[in-house]
Design a protein around this nucleic acid. Sequence first.
DNA 1: AGAGGAAATGACCACCCGGTCATTTCTAGC
DNA 2: GCTAGAAATGACCGGGTGGTCATTTCCTCT
Lengths: 214, 214
Amino acid sequence: MRQASETFTKLPADKRERVLDAAVEEFAEHGFQGASMNRLAARLAIAKGSIFQYFGSKEGLFAVAFGRAVELFKGPLKAARERAKGQGFFEVLRQSLLAGMDFIEAHPRIHRIYLKMLHNEDFPLRERVLGQVRAASAKYFRPLVLEGIRRGELRTDLDPDLAVYVLDTLLDRFLQSLAAAPLDGGLGVFGAERAVAERRAAELVEFLRKGLSA
Amino acid sequence: MRQASETFTKLPADKRERVLDAAVEEFAEHGFQGASMNRLAARLAIAKGSIFQYFGSKEGLFAVAFGRAVELFKGPLKAARERAKGQGFFEVLRQSLLAGMDFIEAHPRIHRIYLKMLHNEDFPLRERVLGQVRAASAKYFRPLVLEGIRRGELRTDLDPDLAVYVLDTLLDRFLQSLAAAPLDGGLGVFGAERAVAERRAAELVEFLRKGLSA
DNA sequence: AGAGGAAATGACCACCCGGTCATTTCTAGC
DNA sequence: GCTAGAAATGACCGGGTGGTCATTTCCTCT
């Protein structure tokens, strides 16, 4: 079941949200395999049978809960792309980092699920979701790079594939550093003030601009 | 129990290895929580009771099996540091990527456990292990960066913290791209010929040298 | 108020888990 | 060949799992 049952869709909106929010939280905390339907039912103080009535199975619940979450991503991404138009490459890049920060500030649990999914093969929809994320990233960064080259902002001998890869990698990893202490790596952004993280983001962009060599 | 019991240490070496290898494989495939002692016993065709005789608990088994694995890391790391002496910064960097590739080629299952550990909080020893990895990375890269600056190879206005962070990040993520298809990100190194990956590694180093800007 | 259908319930199921331990099997020294 | 101690064994335990379904509760319409 990839859709919620009619029973669920007819529920009052606030209850629907309460259920899906709790599900996202359960999956974010424990991963897919570790999430417990019993615990979820207890948290919600509703009968376990109802949850299965709504979603058919644990996988079905995950598909619906995470699917709704992914929708949240689409709006801001498109907005960022619009906002970016006409600005310089590196400024767009910096704002992309800030947009990423906004997203995981607004939806930390969705980001946690994504991170757990990265290296945990037992998540349902894993390939589909990760494929979509990658595709969205490429769709976002590739034109940016190509236009940067065309406009003479970027080196003409730059390999676009490699550039997109590096951008994707650093953005993704920077966001991981915000979310997981072991990945902060001396940058000092995990759990830090927003202003500190913003400064680091700007420094990262400058780094990309200049490279390492003297 | 963080040590194997005397019973285990007295076992013939080949059986000891067979048990620890199978354990590493089980944890690499299923994570900590997902690993099954029953399945492991069945794989090994020995009684489950024996495994608990040897290691006391699932955590104990993990500690011993993964602890041995971590030891494998120390030699090559020191060797890489030695070999690197006196060479230019970027050449050392390139060779570090190759050394990383060698490691995950030789011990893919240990690398997989490390990756699962990154965002899965229920692994025993997680903080300790990830802390050690980070410390080792910093100990490796920081002097390299500082000497690069001193010798005039790197920009003098470079923030060493940021540089170490970026190096650590890109190395780590590059190795992830080799190991997990969804993280390849268009680079084309997942499952590719060694030569392809080596070329990409070299390109990545060049990228770091030059940066993005025209 | 009563009837009919939708929704909620939680006892129950088979299965698997990590862990235990009385018993059996093996091995070494005499 | 016998024996003592070490090692291996697997049936068993309490508990948690995802999932089911007969029953009850609730809501709506006449």
